[in-house]
């Protein structure tokens, strides 16, 4: 009974929403034109790709808080994960191991490329970090990398380092008038610094979300 009611309600909601969106699409375009504002300020953003400019400059504050979300979730994972007795690496398939040994160096190369490409085409720190994290998970699944124990200081510094670099840059720029207020001439270099730091930390965090629990 409850089940049927929820399904009917959900279907009705989807229908109403689609009708409302069709009605919206018949209206003229909104007066606020953010794509034009983004295009007009691209020169001062320090990068050439509009999505990267929005992510790290125009709405860089969102990105700062987003990294805080990842870091805090990692803390919870560490807090609830078993404290010792990590299982040994899972598989010993020779084929998988050979594949992993070939793939991982290519993945590292791809991560560096993605980081560098972010300035002028799709790419950037998160994508690069995701590839790094995936490489670590692949090594674990192939039986070449054991699960991680509770992090020591060095590891913790690696996990939080990217966020701290971002935070220090954001607050240092208060001297320039506002939080994350990049001076146009240094914006490109500072964004690259932040993205490089984030790539390493995001790779470790994403790998850690898997390997601290392994």
């Amino acid at each position: 009974m409850k089940r049927a009611a929820i399904i009917i309600f959900a279907a009705l909601f989807a229908f109403v929403l689609i009708v409302a969106m069709l009605e919206l699409s018949a209206l003229p375009s909104p007066k606020v034109n953010l794509p034009a504002a983004v295009a007009a300020n691209m020169a001062a953003s320090g990068v050439e790709h509009p999505v990267t400019a929005v992510l790290l400059n125009f709405r860089g504050y969102d990105t700062l808080l987003e990294i805080a979300v990842l870091l805090l979730v990692l803390l919870v994972v560490l807090a609830v994960s078993p404290r010792e007795g990590k299982a040994p690496a899972a598989s010993h398939e020779p084929v998988l191991q050979v594949l992993a040994r070939v793939a991982v160096p290519v993945m590292l190369l791809a991560a560096v490329y993605l980081l560098w490409a972010g300035a002028h085409r799709p790419g950037g720190a998160f994508q690069a970090g995701a590839v790094l994290g995936a490489a670590a998970v692949l090594l674990h699944l192939a039986g070449l990398l054991p699960g991680w124990n509770a992090p020591r200081l060095f590891m913790r510094a690696g996990l939080a380092g990217g966020f701290l670099v971002f935070l220090v840059v954001a607050s240092a720029l208060l001297a320039n008038g506002a939080l994350l207020h990049f001076p146009p001439e240094f914006a490109g270099a500072l964004i690259l610094l932040i993205e490089a730091g984030l790539t390493v930390s995001l790779g470790l965090i994403l790998a850690g979300l898997f390997l601290f629990l392994a």
Binding site: L72, L75, A157, F163, L164, A170, S171, L174, A178
Partner: peptide, 28 residues
């Protein structure tokens, strides 16, 4: 243009700084 010690910005930055610092110090 605002001053460097703008309370609006530091009310957000300060807890992020000490949270990261506390993480570096260790679990407890």
């Amino acid at each position: 243009m605002t001053e460097f010690f703008d309370p609006l910005a530091w009310l957000i930055l300060l807890p992020l700084f000490w949270a990261s610092g506390a993480f570096l110090l260790g679990p407890t």
